[in-house]
Amino acid sequence: MTLPDQLAEIREDFLGLEVRDRLQLLLEFANELPELPERYRDHPDLLERVEECQSPVYIFVEVDDASRVHMYATAPKEAPTTRGFASILAQGLSGLDAQELLAIPDDFPNTLGLTEAVSPLRIRGMTGMLARAKRQVRARLAA
């Protein structure tokens, strides 16, 4: 199973760094998490809460007519780790074909070399986000 290029690149970027520098890269991702598009800002009801995360984070996944995926997320600035996880997925998943996204291994978050830096417990939040993104994609495809 090969990872989509954009996710493989993110993983290589993390694995190429010393453990403590991986936290800095995660922080850069956190800072890059884009604002929600306007159509979701006024519709919090459309967003799904990721219960696996300790901080309030919400995601929404769209599948367009060409079967391309777009993922949006919002998390408070007091929760940079969670923002970082959301940003990795927003950047790594957006633009993928829906089937490509569904084929991403569920344990992808554990392969980024972050478990040591942030602890396995915290990584679960990202695993939960990926699982929910996949479920939303399945639901959109079935709709």
Partner: peptide, 22 residues
């Protein structure tokens, strides 16, 4: 902190970080 990255976003001058988990 609970959030392992919060210190990196900004902290009190001179403060060192100790993470409970790691």
């Amino acid at each position: 902190d609970e959030d392992v990255l919060l210190y990196e976003t900004g902290h009190i001058e001179g403060a060192v970080k100790i993470d409970w988990h790691t």
